[in-house]
């Protein structure tokens, strides 16, 4: 049996609706990839059916053999591949195959962070209480992906069409949830 980092928070997070729709999407497959060779990057993208993001602070999404896969740009030679649960072992093999003997690394980090989808009319307001990144659509269009701080925890933040996906370290997940519930207080009282 598996237990996700925010399993105990489901009800408390659900109570933030409708101002804020918070859903933990647990057990996602996540792989940290370090690679800078363009051919290897292209080969990895081909294997997953999604082109790796070329622009810093963005993520790309695509569908292939492993269903919907996202690749997040985390640094000049660092990416995070995310996919549905239970694919991490196969994806790790496939990525290693694509990497061949080129300099780089592939590490299963699936349980390192948990995934939280944040939507609702107040999502941007609530994030603005703890995140210094400008999330105005003009500055952070769909496809934006940044590593930043939310209050006192590091997060990876993805901007979607209809909200945000946040990856938070498992040990910080409860702090993150507690902070989120607190930051939403005003928007629950004054919709």
């Amino acid at each position: 049996m598996t237990v996700s980092p925010l399993a105990a928070w489901t009800d408390r997070l659900a109570a933030l609706a409708p101002a804020l729709d918070v859903t933990e999407v647990p057990f996602r497959s996540q792989l940290t990839v370090r690679v800078s060779d363009p051919d290897a990057i292209a080969a990895m993208g081909d294997a997953l059916g999604v082109r790796f993001p070329a622009v810093p602070c963005t993520f790309s999404a695509g569908t292939g053999e492993f269903g919907a896969v996202e690749v997040l740009w985390l640094g000049p030679d660092e990416f995070l591949v995310t996919a549905s649960p239970d694919l991490q072992v196969t994806i790790e093999e496939v990525l290693r195959g694509a990497l061949q003997d080129v300099r780089g690394s592939v590490v299963d980090t699936s349980a390192q962070r948990t995934t939280v989808v944040l939507q609702g009319p107040r999502a941007r307001d609530v994030l603005a209480h703890g995140c210094s990144v400008d999330l105005h659509p003009a500055s952070a269009p769909r496809g934006t992906c940044v590593q930043t701080l939310l209050a006192r925890t590091g997060i990876v933040l993805q901007v979607n069409d209809d909200g945000y996906t946040i990856l938070v370290r498992s040990s910080f997940a409860e702090y993150f949830a507690a902070w989120l519930a607190d930051a939403a207080t005003e928007y629950l009282a004054v919709p």
Binding site: R34, S105, V107, D108, T109, A111, Q112, R113
Partner: peptide, 8 residues
Amino acid sequence: HCTSVTEH
């Protein structure tokens, strides 16, 4: 390459 897997 070094990757933290503390919480994994």
